[in-house]
Write a protein that binds this DNA or RNA. Structure first.
Lengths: 382, 382
DNA sequence: CCCTTTTGGTTTTTTGCAAACCAAAAGATT
DNA sequence: AATCTTTTGGTTTGCAAAAAACCAAAAGGG
């Protein structure tokens, strides 16, 4: 009986709620085949019948939907100085989450140990179906490990997927910016989107043709260390990467802290900058708006080259909202080709700090429900 | 009998020459199914048995390969001031070609009329299976037409595919830079590649995850009008696009003609610049090398962001070879993140002016041999 | 010359899919 | 209220594709 149910399941993941007739129309399959597959999916508990539909002049249809609580996905979004662990349903929505403060450079054993503990506390007898781990570095996706990370000391080629062997479920490892981008793109059905994370540093995730662009070595997305446009200030500032004139050295959170401090306003962390902006501190607002312009100049080139349909800003500095956005918009609409900005939207993420874990859950579900792996899943859940 | 032969055909397109046993191993299908499909493909003439293989201790295998001369693909690479029309085999290799001088702004009827004439002269009783047209503007691929082109006056939304209705074969329309990128990427099996065309203007084609990145409106790839790095020269030059400081205004062919002319060397066309460089003219070499640096600065950011495995330069200025390359390489290896340049190769295209028509043939074949359209093809060829 | 190895081809069995048919549940009509 | 029409639900039957099993052919090795 275990047939090509994956294609039908994919329809529910994409469209949400469907009746038999709708499945028939969309898939082009026959009524009997659709019935057979729906029965298989329902008996496995992957889909469930929900409230009966309205009549359109005849017998009312019964409607089905993905049974999003049949199992859970454990996800952990590991950042430079902290991590968020979450239990998500099969549609990707976080159900419960915990934040843990731990520095990534303390190494994989220490950090993943914290993830383990957080998972143990979050699981409430849930059936774990998959695990997704987000990391702030380049990832070899197929192997489930980090390769040549600039900031993740001690993590190089560490077998992250193997760490979670005890769960006996698929484990995916993905770059944190990429998982954010997926979380933004998928619900909107945007196939071409750029997600910018502006926190202490600056990173980006690219989704084009509906797929994550990882590059040949998983290092794609690093917009923070591209060259900034030096409008009039003749002094190219040094960056923490060792180079000079990087975007991050002007618009990154650490650069704003540096500049505000130099201007006489005592700040310690990016959060302080955000607070000042919200309080309307003139110097802070001026600096963040200027950071937006630098960011906008960098994004403008990217818009001309990649022609995305939307750009989403996230990260701590994105909490400055319009103050940051206006600078970005100003430069993008000024510099990018009109053709590329005609239907472009630039906005701040609505997902906030949960964007990472949400995206990881979606990516993990993608793997679990992949048409060529669906049998494996049915095998496991009996 | 008309079954899922497409999957097996795809194997031959990817691997070239295969024995039955190899097809069985790669596809995972049973011997009988493979035999059935091979028989169907062979009777349709899509594959042919080639010289028997060597024995490895048992009966020697018979080997099969795509019958690349079963039909031909007509392709035309339309540039700003001229077009190349070609007859290609089913593997994408150009068999015969013609060059026609015609300006694209003379409109679709005039230009496509020239394409028609060139096709008629090139066909020698060949069975035409598909047509591919490359154009210097943004393309709505699914519809087979140009949308909002900046330089293709009179072409907006013109039904290019419809023009070739008389052939009664599938027609694909693609951006010229994109088709070039495919021609470079496919034979090398590179999944992440940037192709830069440096001629009068500057354009690029992006292939990532093995797919063309077209952007949300087919406008992706426009690197020519991104912002150039203004090292020390304090005067941002005006560009023909109306903006200032574009890469093209420094490194485009028209900019070099402008600069050489201003320096007292009388030149009219980009070809003259190339000739001068080859003759070792000091000023020309200096300018082209400098153009390479400007280009390199722009590409460097793209390398950091997209992490391609190779960059290929084509177009007239690429004929300057090492003179242009050295400038590009200098800046890329200086500016891009080490992680992104570790395994990066930067080189000049070996395909030359036929890159466009080759890529178009490959893209057209992709459509013809797509698994969900293979039955349509078998229907047509009987 | 026989045995082993590897590939080629055919027959048999299974299974997934679709067409066709019948049943059920609603609204519409008389 | 009874019947007709419409739409959806479910089952049976027939077909065809795929795999397993089997036999044949063509090489090398002893």
């Amino acid at each position: 009986m275990r047939t090509h149910v994956g294609e039908v399941l994919a329809l529910f993941r994409e469209h949400g709620e469907l009746s038999r007739t709708e499945v028939i129309d969309i898939s082009g399959l026959s009524r009997s085949t659709v019935n057979q597959r729906l029965a298989a999916l329902e008996s496995a508990g992957l889909i469930a019948e929900i409230g009966g539909g309205e009549s359109t002049g005849g017998r009312p249809s019964s409607r089905f939907a993905l049974n999003r609580s049949r199992g859970v996905l454990l996800t952990a979004d590991i950042g430079a100085t902290g991590l968020i662990a979450a239990v998500c349903d099969l549609a990707g929505s976080p159900l419960r989450h915990r934040t843990v403060r731990v520095d990534v450079w303390e190494g994989p054993e220490r950090v993943l140990g914290e993830v383990d503990r957080a998972f143990d506390e979050l699981i409430e007898g849930d059936l774990v179906w998959g695990i997704g781990i987000g990391v702030p570095g380049p990832v070899e996706f197929a192997a489930g490990r980090v390769v040549n990370p600039p900031i993740m000391t001690g993590w190089d080629r560490f077998d992250i997927a193997g760490w979670f062997d005890r769960f006996e479920v698929p484990v995916v490892v993905e770059n944190d910016a990429n998982s954010r981008a997926v979380a933004e793109a998928r619900p909107l059905r945007h196939d071409n989107l750029i997600s910018m994370k502006v926190g202490t540093g600056i990173g980006s995730g690219l989704v084009f043709n509906g797929q994550i662009i990882r590059g040949s070595e998983g290092a794609a997305g690093d917009i923070g260390h591209t060259r900034a446009a030096l409008a009039d200030s003749a002094t190219p500032l040094g960056c923490r990467c060792g180079n000079v004139g990087c975007v991050e050295a002007y618009a990154g959170g650490w650069a704003l802290v540096r500049d505000l401090d130099a201007a006489g306003t005592s700040v310690e962390h990016v959060a302080d900058v955000v607070t000042l902006v919200r309080q309307g501190d003139i110097e802070a607002v001026r600096l963040v708006r200027q950071a937006g312009r630098v960011l906008g100049d960098a994004v403008a080139d990217l818009v001309s080259i990649l022609n995305p349909e939307s750009i989403v800003l996230s990260g701590q500095l994105a909490e400055c909202g319009e103050v940051l956005l206006s600078g970005v918009r100003e430069r993008v609409y000024q510099r990018s080709l009109p053709l590329a900005t005609r239907n472009l939207t630039i906005r701040v993420s609505k997902l906030g700090e949960l964007a990472g874990v949400t995206g990881l859950a979606i990516i993990t579900a993608d793997q679990l429900f992949a048409t060529d792996r669906i049998d494996e899943l049915l095998e496991r859940i009996g």
